[in-house]
Design a protein around this nucleic acid. Structure first.
Lengths: 334, 334
DNA sequence: TTGTATGCGTTATCAA
DNA sequence: TTGATAACGCATACAA
């Protein structure tokens, strides 16, 4: 078994209390005993057991991160941002993947809340139910949503409406007027705030330019993958409407799929078809032609969400929304 | 505060012990009380606190995963495999990123061992020091290394020598004899088993075909990124040696960088230069020309490492090495 | 079938 | 400056 505070106490000839105080750097213990205790701690390679500590303190020093998957590039980048902010703190992160299984989501959130007892919950591209939010509030645990919004919780996001608007506005100014959109599932309803907002920005830009919205030009997609881009473009070809541009609100990976399939069909980009992606990931500069895309400061969003979580934990903030600004990155595809 | 077994006990009018037994499904409790207790548990939304449970059981139901970064595609894919295996268990994963800071690595492993107390440690592309291995052994905690090997611990890997050999052998058979290699840092020494083994496979293939090894044809790279591919190719151009092929043992992303820079320099692939990558990631089929590459069953390796961890935890296995077989995936770049 | 007593490793309060 | 005691939430050996 591992060395405990008791073992140290026995060896030094003091009580566990004294050792505990030394461990925590309490100044009331004399320098002499402090040194003796520290020596034995080093010799016996003692480290405090977080479990015991958490139990009595009622704090776990853990922030829970929930997401559908932790394997997509967006989430990975968010995580990187989070981790970079975590270094100087003594907080750690626990990941929970819902894997898109909505039915079990509430259950998972309860397991986290009552079982794991983190000090805050950050949801990435995920929207906790009102019941869950109520329960977290009741327990005094702050909830933050990244790239989604729900009533009563804090949010870190980039202005999706604006990002979409900028992209479509740019396309129109380039002379395009048969602009399609590849949007996340259920973009039609406000179920997914994210997708809904981008679709709204798309519509607004069309409206502003006097172009009527045509549902035939909307293609929905679930997982933001390359394959969905290939397949999504096929679906567009089968539609009655024509296209001279695609705004792929479902990320650069899917946009890459669109470019690939278009090219296979002999369609020239950007001559015959303009394509704009979303997120400005590495892939955007790798594809040929390089992808014009809407940049989100994803890494910064991750960092910011940890800052906000810490402030909420320390009651320095109450429910708050942080909105980042998107920018358009001009490359060759539009 | 959250509901505890005491609260339930008080409401039902039994002792905490009885509630505890009901929670764990102990058959000794009468059906009548069991039902009464379960009813209140549901009403009050009680869930067992893992902290309390862990403390008394001495088990945390946590497997610790350590890696330099969790943001590269290889690790992400490993994690996906792990998660897929974790679902039916009641085990969870905790991530620990060293961020390549070697000096603090041992310290981190000790924090994990004594502080967090997982039931097993899985290192991804990371090699714990002999001291750490000794300490984990002493505490009876199994250690598994994925894609690396070290004395006295279990390993899950794909045969790197063979993978490299296959790639280079294929290039030679295609008529290439000025074959460069882009290898992970310190491939020259057995410090990183992974890189060393691939370099060895490369050399062996050359030797077998009577081609002498030329150190001028080795380019080292640290982070397996696209940018390193761009820059690595520049370095190759400055070398005295000529190249008619590149085996990029540093992954497909770096290979994509090589292809891009070569193309920018007007070099035709595969006519002027054959390129083979490693890992068979999504990017390999996205780049143009599509990348011929060495496939590793990364997802499977992740799954396998969890299986092995569970077996080691349950003492169904002792130190063991699982080796997967690489395959060559033929596309357009070689 | 249920309850009592004890302990897991640590911290906190109070007393000495 | 140090120690005794109780507590955190739960599980378990043993007693009733």
């Amino acid at each position: 078994m591992a060395v405990t505070i008791k073992d140290i106490a026995k060896v030094v000839g003091v009580t566990p209390t004294t050792v505990s105080m030394v461990v925590r750097g309490d100044k009331r213990i004399s320098i002499a005993t402090t040194e003796k205790v520290q020596k034995v701690i080093k010799e016996m390679n003692y480290r405090p057991n977080y479990i015991g500590r958490s139990l009595v303190k009622g704090r776990t020093n853990v922030i829970a991160i929930a997401s559908g998957f932790f394997s997509n590039m967006f989430t990975v980048e968010i995580m990187r941002g989070m981790e970079s902010k975590l270094i100087p703190t003594n907080y750690r992160i626990n990941q929970y993947a819902t894997r898109g299984i909505m039915e079990k989501e509430d259950d998972m959130f309860r397991e986290i809340l009552y079982g794991a007892r983190p000090e805050a919950l950050i949801c990435v591209s995920l929207k906790p139910s009102p019941e869950i939010i109520a329960e977290y509030n009741k327990e005094g645990l702050p909830v933050i949503s990244v790239e989604e919004s729900a009533g009563g919780i804090s949010t870190v996001k980039t202005d999706n409406e604006k990002g979409a608007f900028m992209a479509v506005d740019y396309l129109v100014k380039k002379g395009r007027n048969k602009i399609g959109i590849v949007a996340g599932k259920s973009a039609g309803s406000p179920g997914s705030a994210n997708s809904y907002e981008r679709l709204k920005g798309y519509k607004d830009a069309l409206t502003m330019h006097g172009i009527s919205f045509n549902p035939e030009r909307v293609v929905e997609v679930a997982d933001y993958t390359f394959e969905e881009g290939l397949e999504g473009f096929n679906r567009m070809l089968r539609r009655d409407a024509l296209f001279d541009a695609v705004f792929c609100a479902a990320g650069d990976m899917t946009a890459a799929g669109i470019i690939r399939r278009a090219e296979e069909k002999g369609i020239k980009i950007p001559e015959d078809l303009s394509v704009i992606g979303y997120d400005n990931m590495v892939i955007a500069s790798i594809v040929k032609p390089a992808l014009t895309t809407v940049n989100q400061p994803i890494f910064e969003m991750g960092r910011s969400s940890i800052d906000l979580a810490m402030d909420l934990i320390n009651k320095k903030e109450t429910v708050k929304t942080i909105t980042f600004q998107p920018t358009l990155v001009f490359r060759a595809s539009a």
